[in-house]
Structure formats: C-alpha cells, structure tokens
Simulated assay, not measured.
Amino acid sequence: MKNELSKNICRYRKEKGLTQEELAQKLGLTFQAVSKWETAQTLPDLTILPQLAGIFEVSIDRLLGFAAQEKPVTIYEEEYKSPGYYWGIQPSKMCLEVLELMPPVKRLKLLDIGCGEGKDSVFFAKVGYDVTAFDISDAGIEKTKILAHKAGVKVKVFKADLLDYRLDCKFDILFSSGVLHYIKPQYRTEIFNNYKEHTNPNGIHAFNVFVKKTFIPPAPEREPTAAKWITGELFTHYADWLIHECSEVIFDCNSSGISHRHAMNKILAQRLEGEI
C-alpha cells in the first residue's frame, strides 16, 4: 500500500497541474513533506488523507490504490455470473497474431489487460506463455480461474481497476482486446507511458480500441464509463516503436442480442533496443 499511495500522490498531483510546493501550500505543509511522500520515505498522516482526496477529487480508496466500488465499474459483472461464457471460449484472432509474431520458444511473460472471462489468457497459457492477467470484475476473475483449471494451465489473475493500476515489473508482451476504451482520454498518455516503460527490449504490445465513427450508431450497451478513441489516436503512442501492423476495421456484432456495428483500430508494435 505504501508504494501505491506514493505513486498515486505523485500521479494525481501532476494530473491537477500542481507542483510539490503548491500542493504543500494547500495542505499547510512544506514541499519536503510532499517530496518524501512521493518517494515513499514517509507516509502522510491519516488525518490528511481526506484533504488530499478532496484536492485530487478522488475517493480515499482510489488514492490508496484500491479499486473504487462506490458505483458499478462494468456492466458485464452480472453477465459474467451466468453459467455460460458471455464472449465464448475461443481466443480472439489477435492472439494468433501474437503467437506468430513472438512465439514462446523461450519463457516469455505476457500480461492480459482486462482479461474478462479469461478466454485469451487461457489460450496464451496453453501454448506456453507465462501469463498474468487482471480485470475489474469479480465474476470474470472467477471464470478465468475456472477456465484455466479446466485447461490444466496456470494463469496468475488478480483484480484491478484499469484506471488505477500501474505496472511495476516488466513483461515481454502486453495484450488487450476490447478494453482500452475504459481509459479516459486525460489518462491515456500517462498509462501508455507506464506500459511502454515496463516492456522488455524487443517486447510487443498487441492492442485494439473502439473508435468513434459518425456514421455508426452507439452500441446498445451504452456503457457509462467508456470513452471511444478517434481514428489513429492509438498509433500516436508508438511513434518511437517498430509498427508491425496498424489497421482499422468495421465489423458486425451481436454480443447484446441486438445486431450492431463497431469500428476498431488495432496495433502490433515492438520495442527495439534503446526505445521506450
């Protein structure tokens, strides 16, 4: 918790455009105190947490690094509680592209960001990757564990909020399918920089995002916490990486039982030596 709190104080301070001295003035403290919090040398007094949370406009739980539960975070929590698998158990096409681009001929650490019910995570584990995965849904995490157990593979899966969680160790592959629209625009650069910094040399990112098109009506789910990307926005985060694929497709979907369409951008990018 100490490291999470330190990182979050630094992150939320910068998001508010405050210097350490300006934050300290708001709290009636010295900037050295704030500096020590952000380097995890000391922790703020418990009585200061409400004031900090108020300045940053976040809950104390979020400040401490816990997934906030004061309101529903995903509309799929109830769907995932049903006996079947909402998204099925067949891996997405992008899994096969990762397998072709970076096969597990040696131990490769892979992170599935927003694993849902685990179909892609379990596929990656079955073909030989060392898989870690996270999701915000308790039911999704439980289903991932069940699917992995049935397949006889190990997936290290845990609960985390996409907006709060930051990587603190490196991976060879970062993968995310149909999830990154939950990252609000103002957080995207900071989160993607964290993902890039925690990718090993020659590692890859395989991501797709839903993009907004004026000629495509909103999806029937109307997810309250989603924020679509614009065409090409995803690609701008990888100007310093080798791009193996950047593409846009429009496809039909029936996930909600109502026929609709999506537009999606996909990127397969590789970090070469010396790049971040």
Rank of each mutant, 00 (worst) to 15 (best):
K2F: 12
E4D: 13
E4I: 11
E4L: 14
K7W: 03
N8R: 06
C10Y: 00
K14P: 01
K14H: 05
E15D: 14
G17K: 00
L18K: 01
L29T: 05
Q32G: 05
A40V: 11
Q41T: 13
L43M: 15
L43D: 08
P44M: 03
P44S: 06
L46I: 14
I48E: 02
L49A: 02
A53I: 13
G54S: 11
E57K: 15
V58W: 07
I60W: 06
F66A: 04
A68E: 13
A68Y: 07
A68S: 12
Q69F: 09
E70N: 12
K71Q: 13
K71T: 14
I75C: 05
I75F: 12
K81D: 07
W87Q: 07
Q90E: 15
S92R: 12
S92P: 06
K93A: 11
L96Y: 15
L96H: 14
L101C: 11
R107G: 05
D112G: 03
G114D: 07
C115M: 04
G118W: 06
G118E: 06
V127N: 09
G128E: 07
D130K: 01
V131E: 02
D138F: 09
A139C: 02
K145P: 04
H149V: 07
K154T: 15
D161R: 01
D161S: 00
L162Q: 05
L163S: 13
Y165W: 13
D168H: 05
F175D: 00
S177F: 04
V179K: 08
V179Q: 08
V179G: 07
H181M: 14
H181R: 03
P185E: 06
T189H: 08
T189A: 11
I191E: 02
N193W: 04
N193A: 09
N194I: 04
E197H: 10
H198M: 11
N200A: 11
A206W: 00
T214I: 01
P218G: 00
P218L: 03
P218K: 05
P220M: 04
R222Q: 14
E223P: 01
E223T: 07
W229H: 09
Y238N: 07
D240A: 12
I243W: 04
H244N: 12
E245I: 07
E248D: 08
V249H: 12
D252A: 11
C253E: 11
N254Y: 15
G257A: 06
I258N: 05
A263C: 13
A263T: 12
Q270W: 00
L272D: 10
G274E: 07
I276C: 06
